[in-house]
Amino acid sequence: MSALAPLRLLYFAGLRERLGTAEEAVALPAGIATVGDLMAWQRDRSPAHAAAFAAAARVRCAVNQDFAQAQTPVGAGDEVAFFPPMTGG
């Protein structure tokens, strides 16, 4: 995948509502190598992002539709989704 390919960021449920967006494409920010890095970057984007991502333990993440942890690598072209704990069934 080209280093220029954007990251596709998806947001679901309460996180989508707090941020007012379901999906965005962003250029891979410099120095971002993992989900943990991306979460820290999100918190610096705006007060709304800071609030939405404040409690990292309550934000779940998936990279390319597989559940991810803070240490999971992310790179250009990846689809990264953020969402609250799941409440199906």
Binding site: F67, M86, T87, G88, G89
Partner: peptide, 8 residues
């Protein structure tokens, strides 16, 4: 299904 499938 309740805790590991993405539904909200």
């Amino acid at each position: 299904l309740k805790t590991r499938a993405p539904f909200w």
